[in-house]
Design a protein around this nucleic acid. Structure first.
Length: 501
DNA sequence: ATAGGGTTAG
């Protein structure tokens, strides 16, 4: 009987079993072609033609502006549904200003429009504005909160560590009957971000409905963020893992420096055929490097099918942290050679990793080339962290005057005077026994970071290195008087013995 | 038309 089934019936059965696959760039392109053909033939542009067009624009952001122009011509921009879709396209393309303008131009705003605005603000790293928008939504009346609203606001609360507001949202979630799996996952993530791991477990344990893999992943991730590695591994044993589960597991292995667990996760990944997931493969490379097996890291790196920026950056950083500056530099060069064919360009983190690798290995000329090329050739402005890294590099190489000049240029804008910059400059002074400038840095650092015990230890060591024992002693006493204690360092590698998982 | 869990530096 099976053999005689028609093609159509098999297709239908297959479609029923496949829960609507996510749209691809190719299907987006098909949709755009179809739209263009209809438009050229003079088809009327009704408001309901735009949402599908706009979701196709997600793959081709530059078309968003053109779609917007057509919407204005046909007055569809006045309708909340297409306007919200447009807001979302701008938001996903990183065009915050345009997205906000769309919202401001809307005369009718329903809950979904408000939700899109709030999630846009969260996405652009503006959690305080997201919460202001949330309050404005409440004042506005008319558009009640939904589960989506609460999820976005919880995310904003987590990044602001706004535990009080987040808890209020939590009670609202229960009160409104919005306690879905998605909101519960958002709650776990929020409590985790605020360091409240017990509350995260409570949300998980009180949940009556059937749990999915995402909520397990959130709980595992919460354990790792709060350094409860044993619990992370025991939760791991309760769920059939997906790519994200294994990525989380690997970061726990890296943190524990457990090569044996890491290898087992690698085996599970291969067994499940998850080797086309770039984020997971990147975590494998990072795990091997952090656990000390640089060779396995390099082999895994080469095997990644579609390497992205993070793949390259991870491998560069791996060489850097193992003191293999030359290899890091060579890899960075190769990344640039392959840029045209791979369409992968270095970003700010890549440059920082290269600078750091050069610093550890004393590659001054390479570091300088990297620092200046990032603005001139790649259009990425170095942030204070890049300056800090470069100043540290110059200081270690005895180029104190060059480091000082850079520092003076940098602090023309006072916002750039971060503690990382001070520490780098202080280290440069220490390596060059420059007491006068070092003391200046010391004063800056203590005013920037008076509660950080690390600052006092750093300064005390600086004075000791310069032979200023009274200064060193004075700082140790000051630290004691202020009740500050430095955490002891810890660097334990796992011994190569088999451990049952 | 809006929402949950992941990878890179210091």
């Amino acid at each position: 009987m099976k053999r005689s089934r028609s093609v159509i019936s098999r297709l239908v059965a297959h479609a029923a079993l496949t829960p609507s696959p996510p749209p691809t760039d190719a299907s987006h392109l098909d949709a755009l072609h179809l739209f263009r053909r209809a438009h050229r033939l003079g088809a009327p542009l009704a408001a309901d033609a735009f949402p599908p067009l706009l979701s196709a624009c997600r793959s081709f952001p530059s078309l968003g502006r053109q779609a917007h122009a057509l919407m204005v011509k046909s007055a569809a921009d006045l309708h909340p549904v297409p306007a919200t879709a447009l807001l979302d396209v701008y938001s996903r393309c990183g065009l915050l200003r345009y997205a906000l303008d769309v919202f401001d131009g809307m005369s009718v705003r329903d809950s979904i429009a408000w939700n899109a605005l709030i999630s846009c603000l969260v996405r652009h790293g503006l959690p305080a504005d997201a919460i202001s928008a949330f309050r404005a939504m409440a004042v506005d009346g008319g558009s009640p909160f939904t589960g989506v609203t609460l999820c976005s606001v919880l995310k904003a609360c987590a990044s602001l560590r706004a535990a009080r507001l987040g808890k209020q949202i939590h009670s609202r979630v229960i009160g409104d009957g919005n306690d879905s799996l998605v909101t519960a996952t958002a709650l776990i993530d929020f409590y985790s971000g605020c360091g409240m791991i017990q509350e995260a477990f409570d949300v998980f344990n009180r949940l009556k409905r059937e749990k999915d893999v995402a909520i397990y992943n959130a709980l595992i991730s919460a354990c790792i963020q709060n350094r409860r590695f044993k619990e992370a591994f025991s939760v791991l044993g309760l769920v059939r893992p997906n790519e994200i589960t294994l990525t989380c597991a690997l970061s726990a292995c890296s943190e524990c420096l457990s090569l044996s667990y890491g290898r087992q996760v690698h085996c599970v990944m291969v067994r499940h055929g998850f080797d086309s997931d770039t984020a997971l493969c990147n975590a494998i490379v990072d795990m091997y490097a952090k656990c000390g097996d640089l060779t396995a890291g390099r082999i895994s790196f080469e095997q990644i099918h579609r390497k992205n920026v993070v793949s390259w950056t991870t491998m560069v950083a791996a060489y850097g942290s193992h003191g293999r500056g030359v290899e890091a530099w060579k890899l960075f060069k190769r990344m640039q050679e392959e840029e045209i064919s791979s369409h992968v360009s270095p970003n700010a983190v890549t440059f920082l990793s290269v600078l750091s690798a050069c610093g550890h290995s004393g590659l001054v000329d390479e570091g300088r080339e990297c620092f200046f090329a990032m603005q001139s050739k790649h259009g990425i402005d170095p942030g204070p962290e890049h300056y800090a890294c470069f100043i540290y590099l110059l200081g270690r190489a005895g180029r104190i005057e060059e480091a000082w000049k850079l520092y003076c240029d940098l602090i023309l804008n006072p916002g750039n005077l971060t503690s990382a910059v001070c520490i780098a400059m202080l280290n440069a002074c220490k390596a060059n026994m420059d007491l006068a400038r070092g003391e200046l840095m010391a004063r800056h650092l203590l005013s920037l970071d008076p509660d950080n015990p690390g600052s006092y230890v750093l300064l005390s060591n600086f004075y000791a290195a310069c032979g200023q024992w009274e200064g060193a002693e004075y700082l140790r006493r000051m630290m004691k008087d202020r009740g500050l204690k430095k955490e002891a360092g810890n660097s334990q590698f796992e011994l190569p013995v088999a451990i049952e998982i």
